[in-house]
Design a protein around this nucleic acid. Sequence first.
DNA 1: GTGATACTTAGCGATATGGCTAAACAAAAC
DNA 2: GTTTTGTTTAGCCATATCGCTAAGTATCAC
Lengths: 112, 112
Amino acid sequence: MAKQNPDLSLLFHALSDPTRRMMLTRLAQGPAPVSELAGPTGLRLPTVMRHLSVLEGAGLVATQKDGRVRSCAIVPEALAPMRDWLDEQRALWEARLDRLDDYVMTLMKEPK
Amino acid sequence: MAKQNPDLSLLFHALSDPTRRMMLTRLAQGPAPVSELAGPTGLRLPTVMRHLSVLEGAGLVATQKDGRVRSCAIVPEALAPMRDWLDEQRALWEARLDRLDDYVMTLMKEPK
DNA sequence: GTGATACTTAGCGATATGGCTAAACAAAAC
DNA sequence: GTTTTGTTTAGCCATATCGCTAAGTATCAC
């Protein structure tokens, strides 16, 4: 089986961890250095670094180093593929429900 | 750290695998027995069963057994929490951008 | 230049994940 | 009642994930 949309896999996987979602939510309020990101999690810095790199790998967060401080910021457009998938999926389901409607209508109009 | 929304974690995790997304997409066309679900994946049945139970655990799929056949169907409303999270997150980001605008405006209006 | 600060790298341990085969089970089909 | 069909369970293997500590490295403050 082909890999088909590894982006989505990375994205969903990045979001599947509460710590990472917490970090994202914090970053939604504005950029922050790594330690400030780590604070609320109660986790050690290396652990947080790992989560951060997962978020970066998924394209959800961009970072840059300023002196000895690494500043982290959210990448708003990164969620677009997820939204697209969601919409596409909903469209498929609705199409199915429509076809089901048609089918039922056909049955009802069936002579006898 | 508290667990905060394990539902979301389950949901995102379930969606982070291409095989599971493929299965979902197939199910969007209508209910299917396990073997039909397995076919396109090229994976063995026990493997597919595992994926299926992850999807079930996340509430994305409901199944029922009819004789020796297990019929699987999508649960459309299961994606709602994800959509909510997405919207909430977008709201946060937009709020932030608004505040940034305000800040910039304040700076511009600052008398000297 | 010495020390504190802010990461960063290396590496370990426990558990989870994703694939498999082999063997069991249960309902149909014959 | 035996065989086929459609799962299901048990268990193995390789790799990935998530936490940690300990020991770097690189700036900044004195």
